[in-house]
């Protein structure tokens, strides 16, 4: 879900313009797009963005629209950084307004110890991993399991074993992780809604 106030959907043309500005080869462009998106997410997370993914997408949408409007951008990465700073400023303003409105609730973040649905989280992750294709499942296990060794070294070896570059390895893990994150989220939501329904009946 987008933070409120941002509902403008980018046109197909804007998206295509952004892709072609990243690389003339569609495959390379797709990979660079995801790389840029990851950088934006890092940026928003470092600034404690509560909706880092949505903010990153917003920045990319704006970038695409500027390109579609005919703006000449020489360095897309640097330009994206500028757009991200604007988006972040807007996020902060929005957050401040909301905080004022919800001041009564300030500082009421629940203690993590209150939450004890870890078995559900584990079950959902387990279920979602089990639903992956065999190759993907093997990959995600290898990627995150250093078996006590240096994880970065283990990943370097994994890339060598698969005959792919570290960047390609990262990209594959990123895509799988996104897939898993979405499916785990849906799984948890399904369980929460199921619980709410059961609670409502009881």
């Amino acid at each position: 879900m987008r933070p409120s106030g941002r509902e403008q959907v980018p046109s197909r043309e804007a998206f295509q313009r952004l892709l072609s500005s990243l690389d003339s080869d569609p495959r390379q462009a797709g990979e660079k797009y995801e790389g840029l998106r990851r950088k934006l997410i890092i940026f928003f997370l470092a600034r404690r963005g509560q909706h880092a993914e949505e903010s990153a997408d917003e920045a990319l949408d704006r970038l695409g629209r500027r390109l579609a409007e005919g703006e000449r951008i020489h360095d897309v990465g640097r330009f994206a950084y500028g757009v991200a700073r604007h988006v972040h400023s807007e996020d902060l303003r929005r957050l401040r307004r909301r905080r004022r409105a919800l001041q009564a609730f300030a500082g009421s973040t629940p203690d993590p110890r209150w939450a004890f649905a870890a078995d559900e989280g584990l079950e959902c992750v387990r279920q979602c991993i089990a639903q992956l294709e065999v190759e993907d499942r093997r990959f995600i296990i290898d990627y995150y399991d250093g078996s006590g060794r240096d994880l970065q070294q283990a990943r370097k070896e994994l890339a060598e074993r698969l005959g792919i570059t570290p960047t390609a390895l990262r990209l594959r893990s990123y895509r799988l992780r996104r897939l898993l994150e979405v499916s785990v989220r849906q799984c948890l939501q399904g369980r929460a809604e199921g619980g709410a329904h059961r609670g409502g009946r009881g």
Binding site: P112, A115, A117, E123, R198
Partner: peptide, 24 residues
């Protein structure tokens, strides 16, 4: 680390008006 998992549960609790559902 398990506590970190519990944070994930927050996500559920924030959306759940009633008690936690029983395990499957």
């Amino acid at each position: 680390g398990l506590a970190a998992v519990l944070v994930l549960g927050l996500w559920i609790l924030q959306r759940r008006p009633g008690p936690l559902p029983p395990s499957p």
